[in-house]
Structure formats: C-alpha cells, structure tokens
Design a protein around this nucleic acid. Structure first.
Lengths: 353, 353
DNA sequence: CTGAAAGCGCTTACAG
DNA sequence: CTGAAAGCGCTTACAG
C-alpha cells in the first residue's frame, strides 16, 4: 500500500462557490446565479465576465445545494432486477442513454430479484434525492409495498408491470410475440408444444402463456396443462424444465421458452439428453439477446427491443418529473419472431410479425 | 395518453422534515438529528419516541441537505467505457455490489468509448455531488484531461489504467495471462501465432502483447511484427483482423485475441473463410465472458474476474473517500487460462495458471 | 442529555 | 439589469 497523504478534504474545503465568483467579478451572488441559470436578463458583458471567472477559478456548480433550495432534482433512479441478464443490461443502457440526452443522471441498483434489496435501494434512492424511478421490479414484488415505497414519487415500469400499480408502463407485446412463435412451431408440424418458465404472478409470463394458448386455439390444438412448466426464468430453470418435460409419458417435441436465458439452459439439457436441437426438438426463446445469433444452432427468438423500452420508460418518467404530474400511460413495443436454426425447418433466417 | 392529474409537486411540497418530527415529539431538531445519526447521547426513551414519529409521519431523510452541511456524500460515480460488452457489465455489477455493501449509491454512465461524453458525465457527476469516481476510461482518453476533470476527487481505475494517472488501480495480470495462452498454443505445435486487437496507447493491449512476446521468446520463436494486428477491440474488429491476417504471404495458424468479443468476430470470419476453428485455426480469447463456454466450438479464454475487479476498485475508492486521503494503490488480479475447444488439441477442458 | 444559533451553497421573490 | 434578504433541510460546535 503506497498511499500518498494528500488530504482530499483540503481540496473539498477550498471549494469555490458562487460567492467567490461574485466577489471576483464584483457583482452579487444573485447575478452569478442568474448567469448560471442562463438568464438573458443579465447584461452581456456581465455574463461574459462571470463565465470567465467560473473558468479561471475552476468553479463547480453544486446541484445538491440548488436542489435543496429549488426542490427540483435531475437525478433519476433505475432499479433493475438482474443486470447480469443481457436483456436487462440493454434495458439499463437505454435508460442511461435517455438520461444523457436530457441532462439527467441515473442512480443504478441491481436487485438481483431480491425484494428486500429492492426495498432498500428504493429507500436509499429517495433519500439521495432521486426525482423519480424507473423500475423493473423483482419477481414476487408486492405491488402494495412498491406503491408505499414510492409514494409521492413519479415512477415508470419497464418490461415488467405490477398489478394495479401507479405509473407509466412500457412493455413489449408479449402475447402477440408468443402467439407468432407458437404459430410458427405449429406450421413446422409440431403438435406437442411446451412453454418453459415464468412464475404465477409474473404478468410477462402470463401474457406469453396467453399468446401460446391463442396459437394453439387458432390451430384447434387442445391445451395440455402439463406442458406449461413454471419456474424461475434462469439458465438452471431451463435445464430443469427440459428434464421435467422429458419425463412426461408423451413428451413435447418443441418448446417456447420464457426467455433466451431459459432457452440456453434448455438447449444444454437437451444436448445432454442426446437430442439434436432443431431436429429432434425445436426451441424458441424470447428477447433475442445478442448471443442468440451466435449460438449453435442459432436460436430462434422473439425479438424485444430492450434498449428502446428502457429509453421510452426513462423519457416517460422524465416527462412526469418535469411536468410535476403523475401519469400512467402504457406503451406497448413490438415483439417480432426472428427465425433461426433452433426450431429447424427454416434454412434461411427471417423475421415474422 | 391517459395521464392523471395528481400534481407530484404537492407531495413534494408537503415533505416532512426534521422540524416536523421535532415538533411532533416535543424536542429540538438537534435532538432528532442526533437520533438519525445514531448517537448514543440521546436518552433511550427520547430515541424511541423520535423513531416512532419518523415512522408515523413517513419522514424521508434528505441526504442532499445533510451533504451540503457536512460536505460528506455517499454517492459514487461509475464511468464505464462500454456497458454493452458483457465483461464491463460484470465490472459494473461488481462496483454496484460493493456500493450496496457499504451504503453507497452509484451514479452510472456509459461513455460508449466516446471521450467527449466521458468528459461530460464526469462533470455532471461532480456537480451532482459524487464523492469519488470509479473509471474505466474510454479508449484514447487523455490522462491529463482526466486528471483535470477529476481534480480534488478520489478516483479508482478498474481494468484500464492511465499513464501517470493519480488514483487506485485494479487490473488483471494481463501479461501473465497472455503468456500462458500463447505458451499453450505453442505447446499444441503452433509456430505462426497472431495477436488480434488493441490500440497503441491502450495499456491493457500493450501488456497482453508483452505477454505474447514473452511466450514466443521463451520458446525461441522469432517475433513477427505483421502478426500483431491492431485495431478497436470489437466484434467487427475481430472479423477484420482475420481477413487481414489471411492475406499475409504466410498466414498465422493461431491467434490470441485481445478479448472474447474480438474472438467471436474472428471465429465468424474464419468460418466465412471456410476454416474450421479448433482444427484449421486455433483461437483464444480474453476475459472469459459467460458466452465463451456456450459457443460452438467453446472458446478457450483467459479468465478475468470482472465482477471481482469492480468490487475491489469500488472498495479502494470508498476507502479513499472515507479516509479523506488520496491513494494510488495498485492491485493485480488473476488472469487464468481456461482451455476449451476453440484451440483444438484439448479434449477435456481445464484451467492453467 | 438537550436546545439555540450559525451556516453549508444555492434560488427566489422583492426592490430598486 | 442588479442586489439584499430569506430560506431549502440538514449538522455542528457551543452552552447549559
């Protein structure tokens, strides 16, 4: 440890403030404040001198002090269920990008699907002055608890919504996407089609299962409850779902997975069981993460624009913050089937609405 | 748009403060402040009453106001070069985790390797009261500019360091990792080994090239400058490096790539060129991102613990913040070769120091 | 153990 | 166009 003893507090103590600028230029601090706010009231020459002094003295604007006085903050909090999942990373990137565009700066928290941590970070973000929250709630979140934690704060939900929650909502068209995927499997001749992943109470999963059932019904195929295998949408989940489904007396020949992450786990388990994916068993994922196209076989998936959803959610939130009014607008994004090798049949890849 | 007209500002205006708590309990605000700070000076019964009032009135601590007065903040800024790269996502996750452990809350910014954006977000984070910065600097960052932007602020560099920069540094042992990788290729019989990616001025790349040269020298193989192909370490870069190397009069038979992302691009280009990776051409990546093991062929890679590096960097930074003293400790993490199918030869996978 | 006073760095009416 | 004054919600000596 070769730490050097420059006390950083020294630098902090000598912080130059608006008063120093005022003194240096020979005006009042009100005038400096006006210049900082970009007011046109101030005389051009005065403005110039103030700006120059700011430059010379190395002044750093203290937004914390400004927020305290004005009670406006340009900090937004993003609360993400699982940053290690590439889909949610994209969501986070979108939120961050929208912030940069609008001169907001985001707090970030990864809850890891843990609702205690989620409650804690929401409290922390409030205390630290977040003006609003973009939330992708952890599995098993209690809508009432979230409502209480965010009381008085604008919120926007991205990708996952809560039953009866207040706030803007930006989600993909899960039902239509799932329906298109299953329709495709049926078109390839499959009749015994499973759905892997998702938990009761997860609206995303329920919507996808609804689309799955729509497609079956469209084709006159009876719904088989044992083909819907619920569980945490993780890689390990995917492995487990395959093992369970292969134990059925009449196993499925294809599956729509809750997510690409689940599909990856499923493909591994199928391989372990000696099945050739795309030939013996068709797999379709959901999300179309970057990895999907690089897998072997390449994964057919329902593409969701995570980055776009994140951007939109952040924009809707910032709109609420700026307007000073809550909103509960719902925006539905696309969910488009991208056909690759993992469901066989298709030689060329393509995209289907 | 079905926005409801609840003015959020109303909720904000009615914010309950320390004074409300004091009045409700019948003590002074100093006493309440002491309770909030967890002081044992305050009488147990008084403490209890204050806590109860806090609960009842739904008080939210205003850390912004506290910071203004005390000039201590528990906000840390993380400035990441490319969040879409899974390796740096892991780094970010590690930083965030360390923050949660220590009751810090992180700002996040994705610079996308853009140095203008980087300068902007650093300024923004300062203005918003970040007490210190974990930086993974964008390619082409100017050490002098970064030093100026962060003057007076504690900083820690993760994964990438800057020439002559002040601050803590946490990086993997790039040289040893690269050396082990190339030694492995030599052991498999390769003599014409390339290095793909990295730019002049990127210390990470220079260190990895140094390790590459070490291994060649150890084996008495002459260094061939045309085998070191520099460029941006992206997927597209990887494709380009392969195309360039195959045009050489005597092309290489193996390559160590700057990163897994580069390796993925390289593998695609090799496939396009009709080469069988792991047989006609050996590829080793760097980072060992999650995807590496799921590729086909599975990618041999030098494993770097991104999450761990992030955690350590954040901890060193928080230590500086809390102590009030700068530090420039350097910590070197492991870089271990993980052998898989992409370099052929190995039937079973293993790990080599 | 508790309270009164000052002050952190800003903004915001209000005068002039 | 510019300045003096008050105040945002806290903490921090300083008394008692």
């Amino acid at each position: 440890m070769n730490s050097v003893d420059h006390p950083t507090s020294e630098a902090r103590a000598s912080r130059v403030t608006i008063v120093d600028i005022a003194r240096h230029v020979g005006v009042s601090k009100s005038t400096v404040s006006l210049v900082l706010a970009g007011s046109l009231l101030v005389h051009g020459e005065t403005r110039r001198k103030v700006r120059q002094a700011i430059e010379e003295l190395g002044y750093v604007y203290n937004r914390g002090a400004a927020s305290l006085r004005s009670s406006h903050s340009s900090i937004l909090g993003m609360v993400i269920n699982d940053l290690a999942n590439p889909f949610f990373t994209e969501l986070a990137i979108g939120i961050e990008r929208a912030c940069q565009e609008s001169d907001f700066i985001p707090f970030i928290a990864n809850t890891g699907e843990n609702i205690e941590r989620q409650a804690q970070v929401i409290r922390s973000m409030r205390e630290h002055g977040a003006a609003g929250l973009v939330i992708c709630p952890a599995v098993h979140s209690d809508p009432g608890e979230i409502a209480a934690l965010t009381e008085g704060l604008p919120v926007a939900f991205a990708m996952r919504r809560l039953e009866g929650g207040r706030g803007s909502v930006v989600v993909p068209d899960n039902r239509a996407g799932a329906r298109a995927a299953v329709r495709h499997l049926i078109g390839l001749g499959h009749r015994r089609i499973a759905f892997f992943g998702g938990l009761p109470g997860m609206i995303v999963g329920e919507e996808r299962v609804a689309g799955y059932r729509d497609a079956l019904q469209d084709a006159g195929i009876a719904f088989e409850p044992s083909f819907v295998i619920e569980g945490l949408p993780t890689r390990d989940g995917g492995r487990a779902f395959v093992r369970m489904s292969l134990k059925l007396k009449k196993p499925p020949t294809a599956a729509l997975c809750f997510s690409d992450v689940v599909a990856i786990g499923a493909i591994h388990a199928l391989r372990d069981a000696g099945r050739v994916v795309g030939k013996d068993f068709a797999i379709i994922g959901f999300d179309d993460i970057d990895e999907a196209k690089h897998m072997s076989p390449a994964l057919t998936s329902v593409a969701v624009d995570g980055r776009g959803l994140g951007e939109t959610a952040a924009r809707l939130l910032m709109q609420q913050i700026r307007s000073g009014h809550y909103a509960d607008e719902v925006q539905i994004g696309d969910a488009l089937l991208v056909i690759r090798a993992s469901c066989g049949g298709a030689q060329k890849s393509g995209s289907v609405k």
